[in-house]
Design a protein around this nucleic acid. Sequence first.
DNA 1: TTGATATAGTCAAGATAATTGACTATCTGT
DNA 2: ACAGATAGTCAATTATCTTGACTATATCAA
Lengths: 144, 144
Amino acid sequence: MPLFEHLGIRLHRAYEAWLHALVEEMNAAGHDWFTQGRATLIGHVPRDGCRQADLLGRTGWTKQALQQMLDGLERQDVLQRRVDPNDKRGRLVELTDKGWAALADADRIKRDLSARFERKLGPEALAQLENLLDAMVADAEPTQ
Amino acid sequence: MPLFEHLGIRLHRAYEAWLHALVEEMNAAGHDWFTQGRATLIGHVPRDGCRQADLLGRTGWTKQALQQMLDGLERQDVLQRRVDPNDKRGRLVELTDKGWAALADADRIKRDLSARFERKLGPEALAQLENLLDAMVADAEPTQ
DNA sequence: TTGATATAGTCAAGATAATTGACTATCTGT
DNA sequence: ACAGATAGTCAATTATCTTGACTATATCAA
């Protein structure tokens, strides 16, 4: 027994299982640029694009880390940036066709993965798991 | 709505919440060498030490990644390696006093964190969450 | 016993992530 | 028109993680 089995190690195993399967299937689907970090970022770009700075809040990264991640995705032609006409300090981030195709595949694969775990746990248990995970990170202690 | 809220993003948020709190409190307790990757590794070193190769299976890392992580922890005087007298190809990994102190603090902090989430969710819900996470990564589909 | 193969680990080089600090350009309010 | 504040870039550094080539030891079989 290496250590007592705490919540953290269980979360770690479960999250790794999910993420590993997602990246593997995205790569198998031909999106060889798709990595774990990029998975996080691309999932935060809204349908109609957004300011680079908006992604800061969504991801919690530093602006430099975000910038380099965007640089990489732009080099891969997954997204584009252009100066915001309404505020020339900012740049708008938008998916390219290649980005849209990847997002569609990612959506499908995530649904498949959800379905796989639903078969494993049962539908009620999966819903319960999702609720509990949400409750874990809810902002406040439940009032009273 | 950036994307549909799937299980993966929930796992991600919950795991980040846990890990961020753990690293932060370990750093605050004076273990400034403590990082996320090292947290994973040091949690896999058993009380009585083990072969370096044993850690490969436990972590799932490549032997080179493992080696470099061990190098770092050895430089920080958290653990030591010595040739296995029973098989001179291998090396035994053992915690130092500094490593033991850190592990004790980590244990305490993890228990505190568990308690914090137990207060947030309630004891039954926490147990249920742990069971569901275990079920997610259990090897086989439940036989029938 | 010798050779073939497998196992345990190292070394070196490079890619990817992520951080810090210093910087430019633009906007906003006075 | 000037002082912040905001948005983003550039450069350097560190940490993490891979791949490929390598050494040393052990095991097994002829």
